[in-house]
Design a protein around this nucleic acid. Structure first.
Lengths: 270, 270
DNA sequence: ATAAGCTTCTCAAAATATGGGACCAGCGTC
DNA sequence: GACGCTGGTCCCATATTTTGAGAAGCTTAT
């Protein structure tokens, strides 16, 4: 209803509607009244009301003192359970902190899903202008350093699959706009070992990322450093890349992807 | 279906079922197959399948390589949006970090919902045994320091309302078991300015908490320090309480609840 | 006071989800 | 290597569930 048609052969109207409601509330930065929800979603008052009541019972939404609705904390609970399974986040955090201390710029930890990268964690340096990214949010692969870092080290087929799904949306005049250009960029990335987003997503923002490889040498995530272009200059990139590489190495060890010593157990096959 | 009857007059079967599915997946620490989901929830394969497909389309669940289901990252996204509105978390984090550095024990940030406290954030000291709490999880008010800290400073009516909702479940032999006992504990808490949970939730775990008051002097959250009883000794409590008080003061300032200087804008009324 | 706007509730109509069951695929066993 | 299982996908007539019109209650602004 809201974003794109509920394509797919399986349909449960109630769910589509419920999620549309949650989406709407999540999108809005101010709580919404019943009437607003109903009209935004073209639902009848009565229907919207019932949904909201049920969602409230499940604590998926909650009411402010004025009776308006906003997202509920049950979602927060679910969300945390959802990433828990990837305990990557927890393990990576200390390493990211060190990275931020070293570089004095914002670090992100991301994973790939479909043709988008999802921000799993963000660490900001002590005093810096707050970056706008929100943990849990996502961006297209083709215009982010993290996306490119993962993509570049994915096996041919899977990479192709991802590229096929990209809608080459443009954000700045530097945004990579064709699969072709992306392909050569991947080459470059592989050669130098790190990916760069040079104001391709946002004017004035430069990012650099390296992939985190699991025991099978498959990229499962990426770590990046982002900052204003005037601070994250081209000259500094190699040095930052080094910090990044050390950081992911640390995470890999912690995750058990690479053993520190030698006499280690054989690699698993998932 | 799952936990308690879907009471309440408003009903949307599909939603109850969908959430039951999510719940199940969230509860399980290993991905589940269609058959498992269907039988656990007493749904027909066919129905469970349809739900899972729809949930997958919405990225509320995702499939592992083996075809099993687990919670999806969309939930992570929603969850983060949900707490964003309380930007308390972000603002409090630096202060909590300092607190942890000072005390070398685990700090929690919690808010009250109904008769439970929800863990909004957790910071652990550099090297410590991992605490079992999960961010997003919740505990009853009557057996947590944070719960008591908030409760004690709530206006009479609201506190009574909360107490009325408590089911005095026992966890250890020290758990407060009656409204009466809780009431006197509240007195004590108010007098000394901080709340203590002395192995009331878990054997060997001692916690201490102070409330975070908003501009109207209403408790909106609580900050606690938790640790093994042998480290967090009775003698140390006052000292820790001091750190806690400084911490919440810092947060209050950051949130604009208390102005540092004098000539400030009038207080709002929500 | 009065009206406008928003929310809550009821109920008959009908569209929606349901689940029985067929079909298919993979796996472990014999 | 074949067989039988268990587990997953798909289709469709049925009836259960959701739907939404509208009436009634509230709240807030005029």
């Amino acid at each position: 209803m809201r974003d794109a048609a509920p394509q797919g052969t399986y349909k449960v109207q109630a769910l589509d509607r419920a999620f549309a409601v949650l989406d709407l509330l999540g999108e809005s930065d101010t709580p919404l009244g019943l009437a607003q929800v109903a009209s935004s979603l073209q639902l009848h008052k009565s229907t919207a009301h019932r949904f909201l009541m049920v969602l409230e019972r499940h604590r998926m939404v909650e009411r402010t003192s004025t009776g308006k609705f906003r997202l509920g904390l049950r979602l927060f609970d679910f969300g945390n359970r959802a990433i828990e399974q990837y305990d990557l986040r927890d393990r990576a955090q200390p390493h990211l902190r060190r990275l931020v201390a070293e570089t004095e710029e914002t670090a992100h930890l991301c994973i790939l899903e479909a043709a988008r990268v999802i921000y799993i964690d963000k660490i900001e340096p002590a005093r810096s202008v707050r970056m706008i990214t929100r943990i849990g949010a996502s961006n297209p692969v083709h215009c982010t350093s993290v996306g490119k870092a993962i993509l570049a080290f994915l096996p041919e087929e899977r990479a192709a699959e991802v590229v096929r799904r990209i809608r080459f949306e443009r954000f700045t005049h530097r945004t990579i706009a064709t699969a072709e250009a992306l392909r050569t960029e991947m080459e470059k990335t592989r050669r130098r070992g790190y990916a760069v987003d040079d104001e391709e997503l946002e004017e004035g923002l430069r990012c650099i990322a390296v992939p985190l490889l699991d025991a099978q040498r498959q990229p499962v995530a990426a770590v990046s450093i982002s900052g204003p272009s005037f601070r994250v200059t081209a000259q500094k990139l190699p040095a930052i890349a080094n910090h990044l590489l050390q950081c992911v190495r640390g995470i890999s060890v912690d995750m058990g992807y690479i053993s520190t010593g030698r006499g280690n157990r054989a690699t698993w096959s998932a």
